[in-house]
Design a protein around this nucleic acid. Structure first.
Length: 414
DNA sequence: TCTGGGGTCCTAGGACCC
DNA sequence: TCTGGGGTCCTAGGACCC
């Protein structure tokens, strides 16, 4: 007896959720039935398509393309700004509904879930169970999903990508030759544009052609990633559906600025703003980090980064800030910058650090960080800001997770 | 009014050690 | 003098996902 695995994928998630919300609040238009997209703010240079309706897709509008380009394909396109708080609530509502069916639920992203339905199939077939779940989500929550059914997560996920929306599909191992092998190579999970190009240069155009290759050849071209996708092409995958989330490996925030930065002083302030946000997240997670990395993107869209391992792990905003300034000064080539990012890695628990702390100055610094965190939690993020932001016109906490007015980062709240 | 932001994992090359 | 080689750590960059 196999374990039935479902992959549940919200159709055009952001757009569906917005549409359902608007209908619930008295709108007479269903955004899913007209050419519409969820898109960022073009004035602040965030103007890309985040999600599209099926009618918008008929104009060949792609996720990730600029709103400028999307509008040139469809002049009447309706553009709605994103509201991540709404998405978070919708995602949670779906997971809550699913917990009735299985204790084994893996949240893969804000709009995708794997469930192991082993225990839920008494007197029911997998297909009927999937249809029931799909229809309950539609009736009770107001949005549609695709459900893919198979014996492992890879095949279930591939199945949920078949015809959309509001559909249940199976992709059992014996269906691989007919349902999966004829598909173009780019449809295989983990085959992106770079791998697609390399495979096509070897004459491999379909998933079936990859599956029938000698795996040692694929390894020689693509190393471990080649082995991974060769296995996927043959339906081989056996990772468990896991309830608990894996420990965080790193965290960061980055932002595209509304204007190009041309001086180090402004860059430092932006870095500080990002560091405030990332550091709060780090402390909320009771972690310290030992590696700080900054990333830069210039006005020609060329990105580069610079990182440093610290002698000791820390969670101090000021220590990170001093490091970030140094890193920036070491690597900035002086050209106009449109984007800056901060990332921490090599995380460890802050328990040990707290016990081993002997420097009075560091202790004072930690007390200050904690006091500021508490003030912001109690009175709001704007209740206490650094004076350098006062006349800067810059947001003192960029990449904001805690401020309702800002777009919160998604995965940290999942 | 032109191109987001959050992650994970892997590899290459250099430094350094024995 | 003619130049090994395995191992680990570190950094930078790239690939993939949503």
């Amino acid at each position: 007896m196999y374990k039935p695995i479902f992959h549940i994928d919200v159709n055009s998630a952001y757009l569906s959720w917005e549409a359902a919300y608007q209908l619930e609040n008295g709108s007479s238009i269903d955004l899913r039935t007209i050419p519409s997209v969820i898109g960022g703010n073009e004035k602040s240079r965030h103007g890309i398509v985040l999600a599209k309706s099926i009618p918008a897709k008929k104009y060949n509008i792609q996720t990730g393309e600029t709103l400028f380009s999307a509008r040139s394909k469809c002049p009447n396109l309706v553009v709605i700004p994103p509201r991540y708080n709404l998405y978070m609530k919708c995602s949670k509502a779906m997971v809550d509904l699913l917990t009735a069916y299985s204790p084994t639920i893996q949240r893969y992203s804000i709009d995708e879930v794997f469930i192991d339905c082993s225990g839920a199939l008494i007197n029911n077939t997998p297909i009927n169970l999937a249809l029931e779940i799909k229809d309950r989500i539609k009736e009770e929550l107001g949005f549609t999903v695709n459900i893919g059914i198979s014996t492992n997560k890879l095949l279930a996920k591939m199945a949920s990508e078949f015809e959309k929306p509001d559909k249940v599909h199976t992709l059992f191992p014996d269906e691989i030759p007919t349902k999966m092998w004829p598909l173009p190579i780019k449809d295989l999970f983990m085959v992106g544009s770079s791998t697609k190009r390399k495979l096509q240069s070897k004459g491999i155009m379909t998933i079936g052609e990859l599956a029938r290759c000698d795996s040692s050849y694929v390894y020689s071209w693509l190393k471990s990633h080649g082995t991974l996708i060769w296995n996927y092409a043959n339906g081989i995958e056996n990772s468990p559906v896991r309830n608990e989330q894996l420990p965080m490996k790193g965290l960061g925030n980055s932002t595209t600025l509304p204007f190009d930065i041309t001086d180090a002083r402004t860059a430092h302030i932006v870095l500080l703003s990002l560091i405030e946000t990332v550091s709060i997240r780090l402390r909320v997670a009771n972690k310290c980090a030992q590696v700080i990395s900054i990333s830069l993107k210039n006005n020609e869209f060329i990105s580069y980064s610079h990182q440093r391992k610290l002698h000791t792990p820390t969670d101090s905003t000021n220590i990170f800030y001093e490091q970030a300034k140094t890193l920036f000064n070491e690597c900035w080539k002086g050209e106009p910058l449109r984007h800056l990012g901060v990332h921490y890695s090599h995380l460890c628990s802050n328990d040990f650090f707290q016990l081993s702390m002997f420097q009075k100055q560091a202790e004072n610094q930690r007390m200050l960080d904690k006091t500021i965190d508490n003030l912001r939690i109690k009175y709001g993020n704007k209740s206490i800001i650094r004076s350098c932001f006062l006349e800067s016109g810059l947001n003192p906490l960029m990449g904001g997770v805690l401020d309702e007015e800002d777009y919160p980062m998604m995965s940290s709240l999942l």
